[in-house]
């Protein structure tokens, strides 16, 4: 018999713990970046305002969250420089590369988180990263709501990580694709 979906959903605290741990490990190992400040705070409003380039990965049951990574401009420039160093035949423009970097970091961090969050049941399904540009607002009235914020501050700028509990997951994915 299928269990109660609410009972099977992981606690937000457990997910944000895993995201913080894996983000710090990934940024340190791959980019030699250590934040000068780590801050968690509760969401201020139900609406989610996208101020910087943002990559969102949807994580299926039992996580049931959208995990959004917003990158400050200056930091993203530095990350792009580091991650594309030594690569040949780069024909893409700077904007495309920055989007690729944002998606890559989100994908790596959330992908690695699944090792901490998976139980003994089915594998946690992840979406590919979805990119949102500055100026986008996801209204709380759609049923989705931010449930946790984490800010990692580096010398070159910040990464804002927001956990979003969707009202209706598939509708929200369609909405993101429609905005993109």
């Amino acid at each position: 018999m299928a269990g109660n979906a609410e009972d099977e959903t992981l606690a937000v605290e457990r997910v944000i713990d895993a995201v913080e741990r894996r983000a710090l490990a990934c940024l340190a190992a791959e980019l030699d970046l250590t934040p000068s400040r780590i801050e968690r705070r509760p969401p201020e409003t139900d609406d989610i305002v996208i101020r910087d380039l943002t990559a969102i990965v949807a994580a299926g049951p039992p996580v049931n969250l959208y995990i959004a990574f917003s990158f400050g401009d200056a930091l993203l420039v530095e990350l792009t420089r580091s991650l594309t160093a030594g690569l040949e035949n780069i024909e893409e423009d700077e904007g495309t590369l920055r989007e690729a970097v944002a998606g890559e970091v989100a994908n790596l961090v959330v992908g690695h988180c699944t090792a901490d969050l998976a139980g003994r049941g089915e594998a946690i399904i992840l979406s590919p990263p979805i990119l949102l540009g500055p100026g986008t607002i996801i209204y709380g009235s759609t049923g989705s709501r931010a449930v946790a914020h984490l800010t990692l501050t580096f010398d070159a700028g910040v990464i804002e990580i927001t956990l979003v509990r969707p009202g209706r997951p598939l509708d929200l994915i369609r909405k993101f694709k429609g905005i993109d």
Binding site: N107, L108, V110, G111, H112, C113, T114, A115, D116, L117, A118, G121, E122, A123, I124, L126
Partner: peptide, 11 residues
């Protein structure tokens, strides 16, 4: 893959 979970590798 970036998936760290054993179940995905088994799949």
């Amino acid at each position: 893959t970036s998936h760290g979970q054993e179940q995905m590798v088994v799949r």
